[in-house]
Design a protein around this nucleic acid. Structure first.
Length: 288
DNA sequence: TTCCAGGTCCCTA
DNA sequence: TAGGGACATGGA
């Protein structure tokens, strides 16, 4: 099936400009420019997608033998559209880039559309698993989570794929499982809290994916502090906040303050001129 | 062995 | 409102 594109974009950059492509159950094949991703449909069905980009559309091939009706296809398209931010226009950001020579390469290469996960629950868990640890350990924890609690997906593919676990499955396994087998340490309580809030009809975690919803309640999730919240804001399409962590501080102090530590206020105002797009300006400043 | 990583929580003052 | 210790894990 095809998804027509309102705006063309750099498919490879959309996937590899943010680290999520390295986390299970995402599987990026760089040479062929193919993105494999197992997803979950309603009525407890799982399938493997293979996504590629053509001139004016995304092509989605299903690698799982399953009859799909109209609603199934809509669910698939909705999840893929969310992952690649297809409903969002990046033209306002590109217009801003044109006033700044150092960022001209972003519109020139149609970058900025950073990959996100099908569910907000998955992204909350993944962001929590990036805190106070090294990237390699983040990859291990996510891999343990998917291998331990994800469901196997039947597919015409040499690799075995598992889905990202549902909040139900995480709660069923419990906190002790997360500690002993996923090796997330003290983060276990945070993940349990995220799963609980994902299933709480009042909190309704996934509802914050709606554009322009008030996302401040995400701060109530245990383990979501300033860095995690600002990262989640970016994931939800609000780019005006900065993920001030050790990487941010090291980069900014080295590049803009001659290696000398400035005040907190000055440290965090480096990208102010970018207004609504501070996160993306920072991101392409540090990683390009 | 000790330190600390793409932080956050919680308790003091 | 700000400061600082504790927190699990695993690699250097």
């Amino acid at each position: 099936m095809k998804i027509p594109l309102h705006e063309t974009f750099n498919f490879k950059a959309a996937i590899t400009d943010y680290g999520w492509w390295m986390l299970s159950p995402n599987d990026w094949h760089d040479e062929e420019c193919l993105f494999y991703r197992p997803i979950r449909l309603s009525r407890d069905r799982n399938l493997l997608l293979c996504i590629s980009k053509h001139s004016n559309h995304l092509m989605i091939n299903t690698e799982t033998e399953m009859s799909l009706d109209h609603n199934d296809m809509k669910e698939i398209k909705d999840q893929v559209s969310w992952m690649f931010r297809l409903q969002d226009s990046f033209e306002p950001f590109y217009a801003l880039c044109h006033d700044h020579e150092e960022l001209l390469h972003i519109p020139a290469n149609r970058k900025g559309r950073l990959l996100r996960s099908p569910s907000l629950f998955e992204d909350v868990v993944k962001v929590i698993l990036t805190t106070n640890t090294r990237w390699k350990q983040t990859m291990n924890m996510v891999s343990n989570l998917v291998n331990g609690l994800g469901e196997s997906v039947k597919a015409n593919h040499q690799n075995e794929f598992k889905t990202f676990p549902t909040p139900e499955r995480v709660l069923e396994a419990g906190e002790s499982y997360l500690k002993e087998h996923v090796r997330v340490g003290y983060r276990s309580a945070y993940i349990i809290d995220a799963a609980t809030k994902a299933l709480d009809p009042v909190f309704d975690l996934e509802s914050y994916k709606v554009l322009d919803s008030d996302i401040t309640k995400l701060k109530e999730i245990k383990g979501v502090g300033p860095y995690a919240f600002n990262t989640l804001a970016m994931i939800l399409g609000k780019y005006d906040l900065l993920p001030v962590d050790s990487e941010y501080k090291a980069h900014v102090i080295k590049k803009y303050f001659n290696g000398k530590k400035p005040t907190k206020q000055k440290l965090e105002s480096v990208y102010d001129k970018w207004g609504s797009y501070k996160f993306l300006a920072y991101w392409y400043d540090i990683y390009s």
